[in-house]
Design a protein around this nucleic acid. Sequence first.
DNA 1: GAGTTGATCACT
DNA 2: GTGATCAACTCT
Length: 213
Amino acid sequence: MTTAELFSLDVMAMARALLDFELVHAAAEGTTAGRIVEVEAYQGPHDRAAHSYGGRPTARTQAMFGPPGRAYIYRIYGMHQCCNVVAAPTGTPHAILLRALAPTEGLPLMAARRKLELPQAFDPARPPRAVKLLTAGPARLVQAMGVDMRYYGHALDTPPYFLRFRGARTPKSDVACGPRINVDYAGEDAARPWRLWLRGTPYLSVPGVESQD
DNA sequence: GAGTTGATCACT
DNA sequence: GTGATCAACTCT
């Protein structure tokens, strides 16, 4: 699948397809990459949990209203940053939050950025705690990848920060869904099963609670 | 369980 | 313009 095909999908299909992609940042100091293993869809303007709920573009959210495939990065709690992929055509403010990666490249650089001590060797299927802490969490992965507001609105099919197809689709049975994290304030929308993750991944940001689908 | 700061919104 | 409130989180 090409990024052009990815970006033309409707929001939930695109969220699922993102699990077939790696996120790559080819920075001057080195390249880091990881497979996307957990995402959440936000479907403004009718989704109470979305930053674009009910509204017109603001200085913070304008990227969500633009074309699909761009980065919507926001600052939260005054100290963290999170990265979304904009979905849906211009004017429809949907976005997909990247919540966790399974690191594939540049682990030492990630560890340096995250100020974590990396073990000498480990089984990728059973990563030790420090390895999970690299990229399991939306703000963690942004920090590990060396990304920040410079990439606000950046087209994610374009180096140095881009999405790369892994070469195979993930079987539908390997994808689980459940309610999104920390959106309790969103009323009825809080229960919608718009969080998707790769079943069995050790890199989930928080344990998955599956919805019946 | 606390930290920390930008954005938003309801007001002047 | 001003002040109150809150936030799609992380680390201990």
